[in-house]
Design a protein around this nucleic acid. Structure first.
Length: 567
DNA sequence: GCCGTTTTCGGCCCGACTGTTTTCAGTCG
């Protein structure tokens, strides 16, 4: 996937143009960057299939930007960008990562002090040179220095699965204030994005001051970045930034709509409002000075002639058109989920017994779980060989009698060897209810053939964490995903939505492609302890982001239908 | 640089907070 790289380069061009005070072009480049970043298809495959014409079909991409993308795909660089960079050799990315530093300030500091990097900036601050420049002062120096130490942390996005407990703790603290009339988490958390940069919380109250004062003093708050009557920002000890917005109850809907985003979705919706002669802001939908909708999101979208898209779809990747045509899909719901198809126990690298896991899932309302331990050649602690696997099958039969009300399926997470064969014999796999197969080695090679070979094995039901990505740690291995989808369809193999927080694999884009190709999907938490049962929530969110309906997921089947499907 | 069932030219989403200013530019979301 080249999309992220392309987006970054275009954004850099935008920044450089902004530095030079060029009008409007920066906006165009950044808009194009945003569109490419949220594209469901790889730009290089678009280019391969349809050439320059295909690139120009991307919203925000015209002749000039298309040519620059083409140049990058062919040569690995963009001459225009290299030239611009030579004239302004500034590490914009690094410098603007500092709180309160934007391109204009970077420009000023370069012109006046030849500041090119964070190191230069640090030196200039130490020499007290910054404060002598118009627009800067002693306080700016202080602020910059302070935020430099946070830069590394802030640039990192956190997996959503790890954000939930932190967020729910904050919400709980806020709910205890009697002044809080209504509260919601907005932003990327509400949209259930795989990773979260910062957390947005919306509160309705008649008494903003009390809410703001308490919030900025909550436990876990390390630093107050900004504090005002309607908006405050803090950084938690965990490094996460939390923004809180306080508004009166009568504009709750428009505020929630606005603060949920995404930015691309918000801009697109505002433009629809403009076309109808309205103005949309967080304060409501206006006709002239008259408010015509503000209490609920549904009301606003209705007045704009569209359905209200579920938050998970709000990325401007087709949901707006679908909402206008009243053709939004009915997304899968938590209550549709009957089972978890990827669970570990003490038998391999988990921390709880099978019985404990089953009881935890039963308590959470599940009808079945599949115990899927690591197998054979995998060097992970206590991987199961054929003998232990068969022993576990017998053991599970016993536990099934001890824990009524939930059905434990025998399975495994079999290792796909380099040649595409499983590292447990078919004779054994045949005796299991559900077989998840996954790649655990050879991350640097193209694994398309290997996975297709595995899918053609009739004993393999699900391909686990299909792209091998680890958030913030490992890039996905190279795959021809179109070929994977074809093979999944013809071999009737499901692809996993592994929602262990550091995996989130498949991700949004690939899920949507699988849904479009009518390939079955299976959510698996990859739970290694009873505390991991809750990861299902982000798995469902991820499935919804990929436009999954009930019918796209194995987990929504009854146990009878699932077993039939597996056979 | 991009875009258009009002436009192929003339516009580009909107508002809060901060630090520096004496009324606002820059940044952020």
């Amino acid at each position: 996937m080249k999309n992220k790289q392309v987006a970054k380069l275009l954004r850099e061009i935008g920044d450089l143009l902004e530095l030079r005070d060029v009008k409007f072009k920066p906006y165009a480049y950044k808009k194009a960057a945003m569109a490419i970043e949220s594209l469901s298809k790889d730009v290089s495959s678009i280019y391969k299939e349809e050439g320059l014409k295909g690139l120009k079909k991307i919203s925000g991409v015209g002749q000039s930007i298309a040519e620059k993308i083409e140049e990058f795909l062919k040569t690995g660089k963009i001459k225009y960008l290299e030239k611009e960079k030579k004239e302004l050799p500034v590490d914009i990315d690094e410098l603007t990562a500092i709180e309160g530093m934007g391109v204009k300030k970077v420009q000023k500091l370069y012109k006046k002090l030849k500041v090119k990097s964070v190191a230069d900036l640090k030196k200039a601050i130490k020499q007290k040179k910054i404060r002598r420049i118009a627009g800067f002062g002693e306080k700016s120096e202080e602020r910059m220095l302070e935020s430099m130490s946070f830069v590394k942390k802030t640039k990192k996005r956190m997996p959503i699965g790890y954000i939930f407990p932190i967020v729910s703790d904050l919400v709980k603290q806020l709910k205890q204030l009697k002044q809080v009339q209504k509260i919601d988490v907005a932003g990327s958390v509400r949209r259930m994005k795989e990773t979260v940069g910062d957390v947005d919380i919306l509160v309705a109250t008649k008494n903003p001051k009390v809410v703001m004062d308490s919030f900025t003093k909550f436990k876990g708050v390390k630093r107050v970045i900004a504090k005002g009557a309607t908006r405050s920002s803090v950084r938690l000890e965990t490094g996460i930034q939390v923004d809180i917005r306080v508004i009166p109850l009568n504009i709750y809907g428009s505020a929630l709509q606005y603060f949920t985003g995404s930015k691309a979705h918000s801009i697109a919706v505002r433009k629809i409002a403009m076309k109808k002669g309205y103005k949309l802001s967080e304060y409501g939908l206006f006709k002239g000075k008259k408010v015509i909708a503000s209490r609920t999101e549904e009301e606003i979208y209705r007045k704009l002639g569209m359905q209200c898209p579920p938050p998970e779809l709000r990325e401007d990747t087709g949901e707006i058109e679908a909402a206008q045509k009243k053709k939004l899909p009915t997304l899968v719901n938590p209550k549709d989920i009957k089972g978890d198809l990827h669970v570990h126990s003490k038998w391999s690298d988990g921390t709880n017994t099978i019985k404990e896991m089953a009881q935890a899932y039963k308590k959470a309302g599940y009808k079945y779980i599949a115990i899927t331990e690591h197998t054979g050649s995998l060097k992970i602690a206590k991987a199961l060989d054929s003998k232990r696997l068969l022993k576990q099958v017998a053991e599970i039969k016993k536990i099934n009698r001890q824990v009524p009300g939930i059905r434990i399926l025998s399975g495994c997470e079999v290792n796909i060897k380099a040649d595409g064969n499983p590292d447990i014999s078919d004779k054994i796999l045949k005796q299991l209810d559900i077989v998840v197969a996954a790649v655990h080695s050879g991350f640097r090679s193209n694994n398309t053939k290997r996975i297709i070979k595995a899918m053609e094995n009739p004993n393999i039901d699900i391909i686990g964490h299909p792209t091998g990505v680890l958030i913030g740690k490992r890039a996905p291995y190279s795959l021809n995903f179109d070929n994977i989808l074809d093979a999944a369809k013809s071999s009737k193999t499901a692809l996993e939505i592994n929602c262990f927080p550091t995996r989130m694999d498949l991700g949004t884009f690939h899920i949507k492609e699988a849904v479009d190709a009518k390939v079955m999907l299976a959510i698996g938490t990859d739970a290694h302890s009873v505390d991991h049962v809750r990861f299902m929530a982000s798995g469902i969110g991820l499935a919804r982001r990929g436009w999954c309906s009930k019918g796209n997921l194995l987990n929504t089947m009854t146990i009878e239908r699932l077993k039939k499907w597996a056979r």
